[in-house]
Write a protein that binds this DNA or RNA. Structure first.
Lengths: 204, 204
DNA sequence: TGAATTTTGTACCGCTTCGCATATATTGAT
DNA sequence: ATCAATATATGCGAAGCGGTACAAAATTCA
């Protein structure tokens, strides 16, 4: 692939453009972001945006999808670093933190949890995207807990799916709390406490 | 108070109107809701809305504030029902559930967590409101855990603030997951697991 | 060189947005 | 009855919205 195509070459990189679009949606949400703002952020004008990705909703979904692929990939890499369940779980949360904290003077939290959640009640496609994203997080964590149990790090009575849900839940809260800039909330401490709480009573 | 006022009597009840406005914001978020929709929902026309509550943002903040007062009141009542820490904690989550599930064919989740979170990155007032609301939840839970510890239901080593943060976090996730209509997620089971996980290792 | 193809830029459409200016209605006080 | 005070109703206006028609630009192929 990547053979020379016939017409005028595009002046943008789709991945970069979607990244820039995400940045805008991330900060302001779907409804709060105008196509003009996306146009400015990406450097593409509106007809190009439309031709490349579709309408506003399609741009949003593709931008979020791209984020999800990348972000979840990094979270999984940390989660399966194989330095023991406690260290890996902490690494999982810590891997999310810089992303959640990103933003000029404003911590943007998680684009999926913090912006898709609003639209979920109004748009079935975005609702399905969100549900799937939450499932992916739970599943990755569940797989990691199953591995830990099989390796004898966790007691045989430990239920991976249950632990996965708990661990996923704490990630959701982390996303919300960081974006809310809750006073006195210290993410690193929260992560430490989370890991301890989840593993409490399940160590082999 | 409530002496007869001088001009034409208002044709609306402020509390009811704010409740109707919240309903619209709850479903569609702040940016996704127009003043026309609020006007329809409340039965008030725009000038009346403006005179009564202020601009769109003021309406939103007052509606959410009213919700918070009422909702948190009910949660606290359940949390301090005094039937033991495990039962009370479960009651706390169960008290939130019907509210989170409400909505015609759509579970709306929590209006604060699911709609204020987006705006928090863009609006400092709403950010502060959200942060305060999250603090209130944590504080109520912390107080309840402190009580349980003082009564000997929890070990002396239990840290109420830490437990409060954990328990609050699971409420956040409950709100998000219900609104996302995550397939296979069963709130009642999740609540049961949450209570068990939080109290694990802290029972006296 | 010229035709075909793809992307870009301008400019616009119809519609909705929020906020308010103005006029009307309904009450209590005088 | 008249006035003052408050609430409601109509409707406007400037700006912004998402989306697109159309022509110019830039490239490959013949």
């Amino acid at each position: 692939m990547n053979e020379k195509r016939r017409g005028r070459p595009r002046g943008y990189d789709p991945e970069t453009a979607l990244g820039a679009a995400l940045e805008a949606f991330w900060r302001q949400g779907f409804s709060g972001t105008s196509l003009d703002q996306i146009s400015t952020a990406t450097g593409m004008n509106r007809p190009s945006l439309y031709a490349a990705f579709g309408d506003k909703k399609a741009i949003y979904r593709k931008a979020v999808e791209q984020f999800n692929r990348d972000f979840l990939g990094r979270l999984k890499a940390a989660l399966f670093a194989d330095e023991g369940i406690a260290a890996d779980l902490a690494g999982f949360y810590l891997a999310a933190l810089p992303t959640y904290r990103s933003g000029e003077g404003v911590a943007k939290g998680c684009p999926v949890i913090c912006t898709a959640t609003v639209e979920a009640a109004v748009d079935d496609d975005i609702q399905a995207d969100l549900a799937r994203a939450l499932d992916c997080i739970d599943e990755a964590l569940t797989a990691r807990f199953a591995l830990a149990r099989d390796r004898g790090e966790l007691s045989g009575a430990a239920e991976p799916a249950k632990l996965g849900r708990m661990a996923g839940a704490l990630l959701h809260s982390l996303a919300v709390r960081v974006r809310a800039r809750q006073s006195g909330f210290e993410p690193e401490l929260f992560i430490e406490e989370s890991v301890a709480a989840i593993l409490a009573g399940h160590r082999a």
